[in-house]
Amino acid sequence: MTITTARLLRAVTLVVLLIFLFRPETFEPMLALLVANNAPAIYNQGSLLSLTISHLAIAIAATAAAALISVGFAILVTRDFGREFLPLSRSVANIGQTFPPVAVLALAVPIVGFGTKPTLIALFLYALLPIFENALTGLTGLAPTVREAARGVGMTGFQRLLRVELPLAFPVILTGIRLAFVISLGTATIGSTVAAPTLGEVIIAGLLSSNTAFVLQGGIIVAALAVLSYDGLTALERLTARRTGRVATAV
Results as ranks from 00 to 15, higher is better:
V112T: 01
A62N: 09
V202L: 02
V247L: 14
I221N: 04
I183R: 08
N94Q: 14
G113E: 10
F170E: 04
I177W: 09
G157A: 13
L161E: 14
P171A: 00
M30A: 15
G154H: 08
T98G: 15
D80F: 02
P118C: 06
G219Y: 06
L129N: 14
E84A: 12
S209M: 10
R147S: 11
A39T: 09
F114I: 10
M30Q: 06
R246Q: 06
L86M: 07
G154W: 08
L8C: 05
L120G: 03
L185T: 13
L228N: 06
I183H: 07
A226I: 02
N44S: 11
R7D: 02
A150Y: 02
V71M: 11
I69L: 15
P171C: 04
V164W: 09
S91K: 01
S229L: 04
T137I: 13
G46H: 04
D80G: 08
L142W: 12
I95N: 10
I111S: 00
T63N: 08
L162K: 06
V77I: 14
I190C: 01
T156K: 00
I75E: 03
V15A: 14
T2S: 15
F158W: 10
L162T: 10
G152C: 05
V102G: 10
I173Q: 02
L128R: 06
P101N: 02
V15K: 03
T5N: 11
M1L: 07
R160A: 11
A127M: 04
I204N: 09
T63S: 05
T116H: 01
P29M: 02
E148L: 09
P101R: 03
R151T: 12
V12G: 01
V222L: 08
A248T: 08
A226N: 01
G154I: 08
I53P: 00
A108K: 05
V215S: 13
L56N: 02
L199H: 12
I60G: 00
T63M: 01
V153F: 05
E25P: 00
I19G: 03
R79M: 09
T4L: 11
L120Y: 01
A108M: 05
I131N: 02
R242M: 04
S47N: 06
G82A: 12
I42N: 00
L233M: 14
N44I: 00
L185N: 07
D80T: 15
T187Q: 11
T26Y: 08
A11D: 06
R90L: 15
T249C: 00
A41F: 04
F73R: 03
L139Y: 11
H55W: 08
T244N: 07
F99W: 03
T63A: 07
L88S: 10
G157K: 15
F214D: 03
L56I: 14
A74E: 02
G176V: 06
V222Y: 03
G96N: 00
V104A: 00
A213N: 01
A61W: 00
G218N: 04
T5M: 10
T52S: 13
L129C: 12
S209G: 09
S50R: 12
R163T: 11
A195E: 09
N38C: 00
F22E: 01
E165K: 07
A195C: 05
A57P: 02
